[in-house]
Design a binder for these strands. Structure first.
Lengths: 213, 213
DNA sequence: GCGTGCCTACCCCAAAAGATAGAGGCCGCC
DNA sequence: GGCGGCCTCTATCTTTTGGGGTAGGCACGC
């Protein structure tokens, strides 16, 4: 057999996704490439962190929604111990607010799961070279987001309660504020989300990935 | 080269899923098996129907959520022209109400996307032999569902409107009924879903996959 | 120091929502 | 034919929502 010739070291990749099928598909795609190889596969957030530590891969591809610890938490954790980590976020949903949380915490790129094969591969290469990769869909969303006012933490707390169907009085009790204050928050939520009713606010917030029902 | 020995004809499979990664992963898994092969891949509902017609596969694996035409519609369409079709539904979400719509329309089996490799393969084999395959998670849900009262069509119409944040008056206008009637429907929705407010009803309905936000 | 944004809290008031208790028409099933 | 489920509509009453404005305390940045 001829000697294996490698111009350069391969890009070492760790995959993290809770769906075996998706991991399988990604692994197959990556391993078919001459310039990259899969060195580890994780099925949840905790595993992802462990595998990153163990293999110190060039790139880790992360699903945003995973059991035990979601993508946001993994990015946070990994970047803390390894600020130079190159992480590529992958998710099913565009418009997910968590994307921005990941990116602002240092994730290098973002991909939609319905991206074609080639886009996925070039995203991995881009991230490996420390270039950031952002799918055009997301770039557009990011711009939209700059314009639209974002909710404060407290408002997100209240919104979360609203989404559970709680009344203002209930929300006030749980957050240790008066009903009047709860109403104030709800009002500003409605204004910012451009919604007429709390129910519509929940729909809008869910669509924008600000809350997960 | 030795002659290829085949004890029996391979199971001919068509895959339908809008995520290239998932299709890739499934295809790799299937083609690795000695007793099955992928004869077609579809990226949306319309394609799925077209490919079924063209290849008349033994089994078609269908994602429930797809662009252009979702799994329910595909099952409906295919079963109509080909009552003996063997369809295996695959989805990300347990608790999706649409599952039951598919099964009652003749889909042979149901799988969660996070199912392990082996389960997926044996589901395909089961469906091919005209046995039905139901993941245990779903069997449990089905039982729960028997107990809980389901909404009438009209109530689902109203619920859909409620989920959009519309007021009773709005809903009444759009459905050509009086506000009082709209309220009556909302009331019975709240009762059946065991919710205190319309907002909670939306949350519950969404969790049960009765509506998609 | 001064503005700005956030959280808190209060007021009033009109509108909507929800709870309750009816009732008639229609359709399918036993 | 009778019964039950569904859709429609009515009326009344209480509670909750949402819109309007105002304002003090606090932290942060310029």
């Amino acid at each position: 057999m001829a000697a294996v010739v490698e111009a350069a070291r391969k890009i070492r990749v760790v995959l993290a996704d809770d769906h075996p099928v998706v991991r399988n598909g990604l692994a197959a795609m990556v391993d078919q490439q001459a310039d990259m190889e899969v060195v580890g596969e994780a099925g949840d957030g905790d595993e992802a962190i462990a595998l990153y530590r163990r293999y110190q891969p060039d790139v880790m591809v992360l699903d945003l929604r995973m059991p035990r610890r979601d993508g946001v938490a993994v990015v946070q954790q990994v970047m803390e111990t390894n600020p130079k980590a190159r992480l590529l976020i992958m998710t099913t949903y565009d418009g997910d607010e968590d994307i921005f949380r990941c990116l602002s915490q240092g994730a290098k790129g973002y991909l939609l799961k319905d991206a074609p094969r080639q886009e996925i591969l070039s995203a991995i290469r881009a991230v490996n070279e420390d270039r950031s990769y952002t799918s055009s869909t997301i770039a557009a969303k990011a711009l939209q987001r700059m314009v639209k006012p974002s909710l404060t933490q407290r408002e997100l707390d209240v919104l979360q309660q609203v989404a559970l169907g709680r009344s203002n009085k209930d929300i006030a009790r749980r957050l240790n504020i008066t009903e009047g204050t709860a109403k104030t928050h709800v009002k500003s939520i409605l204004t910012k989300l451009d919604a007429i009713s709390r129910t519509e606010a929940v729909a809008v917030a869910h669509k924008r990935g600000m809350i997960h029902l």
